[in-house]
Structure formats: structure tokens, C-alpha cells
């Protein structure tokens, strides 16, 4: 076990965990931030996507010891009132079915739009390809990303 001081959603947080612990479980089990989801544990499904210094990152393969001083943003920290343009677009288009993968989808989409405010359909698909939606909301997700891009 070791103590790590992390910068999460703009706040310093201290955890005492095994250095090999993935950020996914640090967030969920130790910091009560459960919006970041477990789907596969091997960075194949994207349900655990967070931002590390603004880049979409899979938290299930990111060990706590490798985070250092990087700024971590989770779905809970994406906006204060849940009104980030991507979140608003998701509500406007009524994207979710079961909803489980959507936090990860939103984190990937918001990181994409921060770097590329007007992505083409192909750029959206390529950026989002690491995020599986088992319910099949892909067409709505694309619509919501474009709506957010235009807002």
C-alpha cells in the first residue's frame, strides 16, 4: 500500500492503495465516484473513459501510480450542473437506453470536441470507436456529438 495524492475534478484527493490499482477502482471503491463504469477491464469497451490532462483515457488500465500530478476529470467533474454542451446534447437527442456506457461515451466525445470543434462523421466515428454501446445507440450518439459541436 502507498499513499497517493491525486488531482481529481479540481480537488486534491488522498488515497492509500496498492500502487497497481487501476484508477477505475480508485475512483469507484475509494473515492465514491461511480460514474466511471467497469465494462471489460482491458481497455476494449470504453465504459471507464476519463480525461487525463484533457485526453480521453481508459481508467481500467491506468494504474494509480502512473497518474502523478496529472489533472483527472471524471463524468462527475465534467460540469458543475450537468450542463456541459455534450451532456445537454445527449439529453436533447435522448440518447440513452440502458445508459451504462453513456458516461464513457460522453467523456470520449467531450475530449474529441475540445481538440476538434467541428469533426466530420468519419472523425467522430474514429474517435468514438473504442466505446461500445451494447444497446445500439450509435446513430443517436453521432447526432448528439454533431449537435454539441454546433452549439
Amino acid at each position: 500500500m502507498a499513499i497517493f495524492t491525486l488531482n481529481i475534478n479540481g480537488k486534491k484527493q488522498e488515497v492509500d492503495v496498492d500502487p497497481s490499482t487501476p484508477m477505475l477502482w480508485v475512483l469507484r471503491d475509494h473515492l465514491n465516484l461511480v460514474g466511471t463504469k467497469y465494462g471489460c477491464g482491458i481497455a476494449q469497451c470504453g465504459a471507464c473513459t476519463i480525461h487525463m490532462d484533457g485526453t480521453a483515457t481508459r481508467a481500467c488500465m491506468l494504474t494509480v501510480s502512473s497518474v502523478g500530478n496529472s489533472e483527472i476529470t471524471t463524468i462527475e467533474g465534467l460540469s458543475e450542473e450537468g450542463d456541459h454542451p455534450v451532456q445537454q446534447a445527449w439529453l436533447e437527442v435522448d440518447v440513452p437506453q440502458c445508459g451504462y456506457c453513456q458516461a464513457g461515451q460522453i467523456m470520449t466525445a467531450s475530449a474529441l470536441l475540445a481538440k476538434n470543434p467541428n469533426p466530420s462523421d468519419e472523425e467522430i466515428e474514429m474517435a468514438m470507436n473504442g466505446n461500445i454501446c451494447r444497446c445500439g445507440t450509435y446513430t443517436r450518439i453521432k447526432k448528439a456529438v454533431k449537435l454539441a459541436a454546433n452549439s
Partner: peptide
């Protein structure tokens, strides 16, 4: 719209 929509897009504990 989905009654749980806001909670889903803000990562509230639902599952």
C-alpha cells in the same frame, strides 16, 4: 424524454 436521462449523463449512482 427518459426520466433518468439527467442522472445518466451526470454519472449518478443508478446501477
Amino acid at each position: 424524454k427518459n426520466v433518468d436521462g439527467k442522472k445518466i449523463v451526470t454519472g449518478q449512482p443508478l446501477y
